[in-house]
Design a protein around this nucleic acid. Sequence first.
DNA 1: GTCATTGAGGTCAAGAACTGGCCGCTAAGG
DNA 2: CCTTAGCGGCCAGTTCTTGACCTCAATGAC
Lengths: 322, 322
Amino acid sequence: MANTSSRTLRLLSLLQTHRYWPGPELSERLGVSPRTLRRDVDRLRELGYPVVAHRGVDGGYQLAPGAALPPLVVDDEEAVALAIGLRMAAQGTVAGIEESAVRALTKVVQVMPPRLRRRIDALRSVTVPAAWGAGPTIDADVLTAVAQACRDEERLRFSYRARDGELTARHVEPHRLVSLGRRWYLVAYDLTRHAWRSFRLDRLADPGSTGERFRPRDLPAEDAAAFVRQGINTMPAAYDVEVLVHAPAARVRAAVSRWGTVEEVGEDRCRLLMTVDGLEWPAMLLGAVGADFEIVGPPELTAFVREWGARFLRVTGGAAGV
Amino acid sequence: MANTSSRTLRLLSLLQTHRYWPGPELSERLGVSPRTLRRDVDRLRELGYPVVAHRGVDGGYQLAPGAALPPLVVDDEEAVALAIGLRMAAQGTVAGIEESAVRALTKVVQVMPPRLRRRIDALRSVTVPAAWGAGPTIDADVLTAVAQACRDEERLRFSYRARDGELTARHVEPHRLVSLGRRWYLVAYDLTRHAWRSFRLDRLADPGSTGERFRPRDLPAEDAAAFVRQGINTMPAAYDVEVLVHAPAARVRAAVSRWGTVEEVGEDRCRLLMTVDGLEWPAMLLGAVGADFEIVGPPELTAFVREWGARFLRVTGGAAGV
DNA sequence: GTCATTGAGGTCAAGAACTGGCCGCTAAGG
DNA sequence: CCTTAGCGGCCAGTTCTTGACCTCAATGAC
C-alpha cells in the first residue's frame, strides 16, 4: 500500500481529478516529503505524461496532454457514464468507431465491480435505441460477452434464431466482430457444422463462454468484413432521397441538422439529399420543416408520404375521406 | 523507463488488452524473470486489483473485477470512441448520468494528445444530435471548456447571447454545471454585474479560461440545481400525449420501442402514452405504425398531425386540395 | 525593490525494496 | 507418470528510494 507504484497511481489520479495542485498539498496527501513529490513528478514525466508546473506564489502542478494517453483513473459514476456512452457509440450512430467502442467497452466491463454493472443494468431500461428505425437494438451484454470471447479466444455457446425463426444451440470458435451497416455480425467457426459462419448478433441469445481456449484458425477470406459481405445478399434497402423544399436553405438545414445535406437552389428553395435505410426519417423531417416540397425521388417516398397524409387527415377528421 | 511503477502500469495495460496471459510470456514482455512477475502480480493484488491465475498447462493470469476500477489503459482509437460516447452521454438521452459523463469527458479531453482531438473534431461532423427536436445541441468544446473551468476554479470569459439576441462579453467565476431537462446551465458569479447568474450553455460561445484562479464563494441557494430552477420560469413546453391506436399492442410497441409506454386495450387496439418536448416524434411514430388512430390529447397534436396530413397529400398530388 | 512562496535540482547516507536464483509445493491436463 | 504453470519461502547482492539540507530561479504581493 505504501509502494512507489501505488503512489504513482494515486498521484496520477489526483492530477486527473483536479487541475491545479499546490505541491505542498500533494506531498501531504501522498504522505511524503515535498522533495519526494518532485521526484514522483519527474517519474511521471519520464513515463511520458507531461506534468507542467507553475512557480511562485499560487503555483502548482497540472497534467498536460502528452504523446500518449495516461491510464485513466475514473470513479464509480464516471465508469457508469463511460460504459453507457460506449454502448451508445457501439450501437453505431457514428461511423467507424463501433469496433473500438466495443473494445473499450469490453475492457471496462471486464474489470467493473458487480455493483456498477447493476447500476448500468438499472439504467438500461431508460436508454433509448441509438437511431430510430435503423435496425434492431442488440443487447449490450450480448455484445460485450461475444467481444470478450473473440478477444480472449474462448469457445462460445449460444442459441441462434435462424432466418426461419428456428432456435438452435451453437458451439463456435469466435473469430471477429464486424459492424456492417448498423448491424453487428459475429464471424466464427461452427464446431458442430465444421464450417465458417457469420451470425447476426441481434439473433443471438444467451452467450456463454465455455472457458475453453483455442488456437485461432485461418479464415478462408481476405478479412472478416469481406467474409460477412460474401454471406449477405440482402443488404438493407437503402434509399437515396432527393427533395425540393420550398423554404430557405437555412431553415431546412436547422431542422435536418446533420441527417442530410442541404443545397441552396434559390432564394426560397433548396434541395435536400439524404441516404437512409427507412423512409420514416425523411417523412418526419419533411413534416417538421413545415413547408411545401416536391419529392424528386425515390417514388417509394412519394407513396409513403401520401399514405401518411391520407391517414393523418382521415383520423383527425379532416377532408379527404377514405 | 525501467522502473517498478512503469512495469506495474505496463502489466496492468497488458492484462487489460487480452484476458489470458501465460506467465512466461508476460515476464518476457516485461523483461523480468518469472519470479519477479509473480511479485508484480502480487503487487497489483495488494493494490486492490484482483488478478486471478490458472495453474496447469495453458494456465495464465487474468484481471478480474475487484472492489475498485483499475486505471484504464486505452489506446488511441479507444480514446476517441470513449470521448465520442461520453459526449453523447452528456448530451443527455439517459437521465442522471450527464454530470458524471461530463466529468469523465473533461478528464479524458484534458490529457488527450492533440492528434486525437483532431480526429474527434473530424468525426464530429458525422455525429448526430442525441435526440431530435429535444433542444439545441451544444458544442462539446464549450461543454468541456466550461466544465474544466468549474472543476479547476478558474475564471472564465465568454460571450453570451441574451434572450433578446444581444451579445455580451462576460467574465465570471464558474461554480457548477447543471443539466436540467435536456439543457445545460452554468451557475456562475458574474464579476462585472457582481451577482450570481445562470447561463444557458447553448447561448454561450468562445469560452476562454483566463488562468486566474479564485476561492469559491458561497452560492446563495441550497444547491446549484435549485438555483437554476429558481431562475427558470419558462420550462420547455412538455406535452403528455395519449393516443388510441387501432393495432395490436405488440406491433405498436415494436415501433415505439422505449420512447413511450403502450397499454393493451383490446384485441386490436392499444393506448400509447408519451411525454415529449416536441410533437414531431409522436407524429412520426404514428406515421410509422401504419395504422389508424384516435388522438385523445393534447389538441395541439391533432392540429399538428392534420397539418402534416394536408400538406403531405397536397404536395404528393393526392386529393384534398389546399 | 523586497520578500515570501513555490518549484527545480544536486548531494548524501541510511534504509528499504527489488531482483534473480534456488528450492519444494500444488494444480491441471495429456 | 510427466510436463507445464503458478505459489511462495529463502537469500544475497544490487538498486532505488527517502528525507534532509542546500542553492537557485520564477512569480506575485506589498
